[in-house]
Amino acid sequence: MKRLFKTYLEKPELAGLILLVLLVVLFQVRSHGVFLNQDNLRGILGILPEAGLVAIGVTILMISGEFDLSVGSVFALMPMTMAVLMVHGWPFPLALLAGLLVSAAIGFINGYITIRFAIPSFITTLGMLFMARSLTVVVSGGFPPLLPADLPTWLFTSFVGPGNMFRMSFLWFVAVAVLTSLMLSRTNFGNWIKATGGFLPAAAAMGIPTARVKIVCFMLCSVLSGFAGMLQVLRLGSPLPSIGEGMELQAVASAVIGGASLAGGIGTVMGGVVGTTLIRVIDNGLVLSHVDANWFKFAIGFLTIFAVVANAWMRKRAKAIKMEG
């Protein structure tokens, strides 16, 4: 029991993971075995990467002690930029590069303004939420441009694997999750991210370039969001300017449900993945259990508050145990 505090800080996603298993069992029973059948899993895994990639970016940024509300808008702006460029004859790889650069630039602006003027990232990125969304509509000229027919969907959204179980996007998602997870836990840069968010004055005093660390996290978050937006557009086949609305808050919910702390320093990529999966499972499971789908947002809201309260309780409890010991 004495190690509870340590366990909590090292594996903050544990509570979410347990809840996920319980919910899967519950939905499996309630849906009379439909929930875990191949078609349904295929459906869940097909859209999970989009929200999941955004959640990974938001989680890492939260660990570094900052916050991004503009991810939903970047999610729409990046593929829109690509679509418009392709209409003007740009080949896909160049358009992709340009889209990613636009995303990275937005992340840089978010980070630079937040740090240079020492304002809360909540405000900077709230502003960016509106600006990037507006830009999306402006560049589209009001009409979603037509995508060329020869897009490399085989690389991003085609079904692959045994029984065509996964989309390619799922493999991208797993690769990004593994890489970012290793970055956080196994590289010195990951150490700097955790130190920067854990206790900024100490990180700065030990010579960590905290401003640069945060700006890189902002940029990573934006790039992942833009990339995720492109995956959705390739899946849907049309760059709608309204995609990703409300995504910013769901991504924060994912991170928090997965155990990340709004105060920074605590959290894991795995937690963000677990949080996103929980949200997708609830969304799907409610429908299969014949519950009115309008309860979905209620469930997410409840879960978010519950997760934070439970985490705070666990932290307090763990500290109390330590003192008794």
């Binding site: 150490n191 130190a195 854990g198 206790f199 004055p201």
Partner: peptide, 21 residues
């Protein structure tokens, strides 16, 4: 420093090498 230059959410080993890993 008086506020001490340690990150409480990280391990001793990680703290020892912060910035000089």
């Amino acid at each position: 420093y008086q506020y001490n230059s340690m990150v409480p959410t990280m391990s001793i080993a990680r703290n020892l090498f912060i910035g000089r890993e």
